[in-house]
Computed example of a mutant assay.
Amino acid sequence: MEQAINIEQIFGILRKHRRVITLSTVICTLLAIVLTFFVITPQYSASTELLVNRKQNTDANAQWNQVQTDVQMINTYKDLITKPIIMDTVESKINKENSKKLDNDEIASMISITNNQNSQVFSINAKADNAYTAADIANMTATTFQKKAPKIMSGTDNVSIISKAKPDLTPVSPRRKLNVLIGIVLGLLIGLAIAFIRELMDKTVKDESFLTEELGLTSLGVINNIAPKDLIKKAIMRTSTLSRRG
């Protein structure tokens, strides 16, 4: 038998289980705050930009072809930058200045390369748990690649650095306000789910109308629940009355 729940019943369920909902929200919010501010290590980002542009030919068609070639070469450069031939040099230079030793695989995982479509500019982005380390990795990678690219690409000298990375002391993650908001919403949803599950699992009869309207049974009367203290009180009063009569 399907049981419909109206708006009044929903608010009744929320009032009945308000403590569970509030407790769940508070717990999840506190967990989000603890994880965000005390457990998750902040990450900092820095980026440097490089331009791929060889000496232009005076012929217009040749210039167009050169530009398109440079744009296509960026895809090759993006794959090449995080390879050991570049990362080995970056690793040795970074570890000279950094007390925390990093291997080339770790450094490569910190680096991402981005570029806009049909643009001759691409960015080397580095993310680390220290703002200065992130800037050093980005700059060292760009400098190393600029020096090694002509040798690797058979004399093709068309890479220049147009902006260096600078330390940004504002962490890019975790996003504190967002994490706390997620904790509040998640806690509220969990509390609501618990409230409605407990209500649906509760098979006790709430009132007389359920028997008469939902089950179609005839009501023979209502037996009120009397608390033990009331029974004791009535027994004492009855004993007292009998004693006076006797």
Results as ranks from 00 to 15, higher is better:
180 V>L: 05
169 L>M: 09
120 Q>R: 04
188 L>S: 08
154 S>C: 03
163 S>Y: 09
210 F>Y: 09
92 S>W: 01
220 L>E: 13
196 F>T: 01
198 R>H: 00
105 D>F: 10
170 T>M: 06
102 L>E: 12
117 Q>V: 00
194 I>S: 01
182 I>D: 05
92 S>H: 01
109 S>K: 15
172 V>E: 04
166 K>Q: 15
155 G>D: 14
97 E>K: 10
136 D>F: 13
176 R>I: 04
128 A>F: 12
177 K>E: 00
121 V>Q: 03
128 A>D: 02
186 L>D: 05
183 G>H: 08
137 I>Y: 13
113 I>Y: 04
138 A>V: 06
105 D>I: 10
140 M>P: 06
129 D>I: 12
135 A>T: 10
121 V>G: 03
172 V>H: 09
217 L>R: 09
214 E>W: 07
227 A>P: 01
225 N>P: 00
217 L>W: 11
189 L>Y: 01
144 T>G: 13
222 V>G: 10
136 D>R: 07
97 E>I: 10
172 V>S: 09
95 N>T: 11
159 V>S: 10
219 S>C: 02
139 N>C: 08
138 A>S: 04
104 N>Q: 15
175 R>A: 09
199 E>H: 15
101 K>S: 00
109 S>M: 13
152 I>H: 02
192 L>V: 02
216 G>I: 13
102 L>C: 09
191 G>H: 03
135 A>G: 07
130 N>I: 05
181 L>P: 01
209 S>F: 07
90 V>H: 09
223 I>D: 08
98 N>W: 04
222 V>A: 12
150 P>E: 15
185 V>Q: 02
128 A>L: 12
137 I>K: 03
211 L>W: 08
201 M>A: 14
218 T>E: 14
192 L>P: 11
189 L>D: 03
100 K>G: 09
118 N>G: 11
94 I>F: 14
162 I>S: 07
90 V>S: 08
166 K>M: 11
225 N>I: 03
171 P>S: 14
122 F>W: 02
